[in-house]
Amino acid sequence: MTSTDTPRFGLVGTGSWARRTYGPALQAHKGVDLVGVWGRRPEAAAELAAAHHTTAFDDVDALFAACDAVAFAVPPDVQAPLAARAAAAGCHLLLDKPLAFDPEAARAVVAAADAAGVASAVFCTLRYAPVTAEWIACQAAAEGWFTGRADWFGALYEAGDDAAVRAASPWRAERGALWDVGPHALAVLLPILGDVVATTARRGPGDTVHLVLRHASGASSTAALSLTTPPAAAGISVELRGAQGLFAMPTEFGVAQESLAVAVDTLLESARTGVPAACDARFGLRLTEILAAAQESLESAGPEPRLGE
């Protein structure tokens, strides 16, 4: 891909996230050419490709061969091995979060990208939304942080009534908020407070998970993650406390398609310069490692003692 070429993008995935965000954002982006779509269901790939005036590929490796970069909108356990194949084929990688469920699978993506010398970017939405990205960068440049709090209370479905979610996105219903919105919380906290060196996780109602994190900087943080929040109580908030006072993250997140367009620009800049993106596959690997440690903490906790019994 030279500086005068229009980068050729492929899209892997045909689910709602591909239809609502990835497909429209890639088609609308003036700096790329959406040359094809591949999905595990050929009929869905044909429908999505027709909607965006591009080609449906029957063979994913043929799509990789036709592309300079590939965007992934598939479940994490599907994404990781395909991303490694795409990297080996010389494609730059626009990845979704989480990169993988298994740290070893995530490491394989990093190794493949390093071996091929391709760029990567993981679409952690708030790291690309202009208002929140600027806020994160500003706080990351400051010092003296004491503690942080990140709350991701989603009302995707109500506890005990997850049939629709299981039908539309089985991995979200199975893995829950820890793996779906946990990457968002970590992607905000880590650049500000530093890497996580200790993780404790405990369950709440529904799929709610509470994290207690110790950071390399010495600061601590908590994260409350849920997809089963009552709708009236749903919302996202991040709050930091430190030597300079109390700081709350803005809540103007913008539209996901606009943030994805910034992620595309970030990937292309990394491919052009050779400078890794802040949220590259290696960062995605670190998120997977932390989430896996939190999952292990949940599974090893055992029954919680009830006070007074």
Score class of each variant (00 low, 15 high):
residue 239 E to R: 13
residue 279 C to W: 15
residue 277 A to V: 09
residue 284 G to F: 01
residue 289 E to G: 03
residue 265 D to P: 04
residue 260 L to N: 04
residue 239 E to P: 00
residue 283 F to A: 13
residue 243 A to F: 05
residue 297 S to W: 04
residue 264 V to D: 03
residue 285 L to T: 00
residue 258 E to Q: 13
residue 278 A to Q: 15
residue 274 G to D: 08
residue 264 V to S: 05
residue 284 G to C: 04
residue 252 E to P: 06
residue 290 I to Q: 00
residue 264 V to G: 04
residue 294 A to L: 02
residue 293 A to P: 04
residue 298 L to K: 05
residue 265 D to K: 04
residue 290 I to L: 08
residue 298 L to F: 06
residue 295 Q to W: 06
residue 292 A to S: 14
residue 272 R to Y: 07
residue 264 V to K: 03
residue 255 V to P: 01
residue 288 T to A: 07
residue 259 S to A: 15
residue 240 L to K: 00
residue 291 L to M: 10
residue 278 A to N: 11
residue 293 A to F: 04
residue 282 R to K: 12
residue 284 G to P: 02
residue 275 V to G: 08
residue 257 Q to Y: 06
residue 286 R to I: 01
residue 271 A to F: 03
residue 240 L to A: 00
residue 275 V to F: 11
residue 247 F to A: 15
residue 293 A to L: 09
residue 261 A to E: 11
residue 271 A to V: 05
residue 242 G to H: 03
residue 287 L to G: 00
residue 291 L to T: 03
residue 286 R to F: 02
residue 252 E to G: 10
residue 260 L to Y: 07
residue 267 L to G: 02
residue 274 G to A: 09
residue 270 S to W: 04
residue 240 L to C: 00
residue 247 F to H: 14
residue 266 T to W: 05
residue 260 L to S: 07
residue 297 S to M: 06
residue 277 A to K: 03
residue 275 V to T: 14
residue 273 T to V: 08
residue 273 T to Y: 08
residue 286 R to N: 08
